[in-house]
Amino acid sequence: MKLQGKVHKYGANIDTDAIIPTRYLNISEPAELAKHCMEGIDPDFVGRMEKGDFIVAGTNFGYGSSREHAPIAIKEAGISCVIASSFARIFFRNAINIGLPLLECAPAEEESEAGDILEVELKSGKIRNITRDKLFQAEPYPDFMMELISAGGLIEHTKKKIEARRRQGEI
């Protein structure tokens, strides 16, 4: 599966309060959360972005609070993948759990600018900057993580597993 879109670029240490401010934590409807994506640091983001675009950021993306609302807001806004030099631990796990793809790749971050067009292949971890004609390689996902992401996250994955076991008469 190839993803294509343009780059929205941010620096290092983008915290979850920047991605979705605390005052929106009472919202659990993903489409509503999406309306406030990146509002803490970039209030025009939602109006400017298009479905399929990428967020490209520096080190420690998503640090701070454990709010899963942050990756949900990004995913529902239509961002196809976040590419960063590194991710904070809780955010990384949350993103995989809700089915938001992440790629860790410092060179891609260093050599891509806002507005560049990228083409990304998740399974192989290949990131192509079409604007600058450059190819980057991120660490590809282990198979089980790719399965989680393709299923749309941990809950969907668990449901499928339960359903499969049910069909086979195990439960």
């Binding site: 609070s65 454990s66 709010r67 809780i90 796990r93 949350n94 759990n97 941990l154």
Partner: peptide
């Protein structure tokens, strides 16, 4: 495990206490 990043507080009592997201804690 707590759905809040400061769950680590209880590490002071030698408990392996860590923050996770809502889905992980739900499971």
């Amino acid at each position: 495990v707590g759905a809040d990043s400061h769950t680590v507080t209880a590490g002071a009592l030698a408990a392996f206490a860590t923050g996770m997201g809502s889905t992980d804690v739900a499971i």
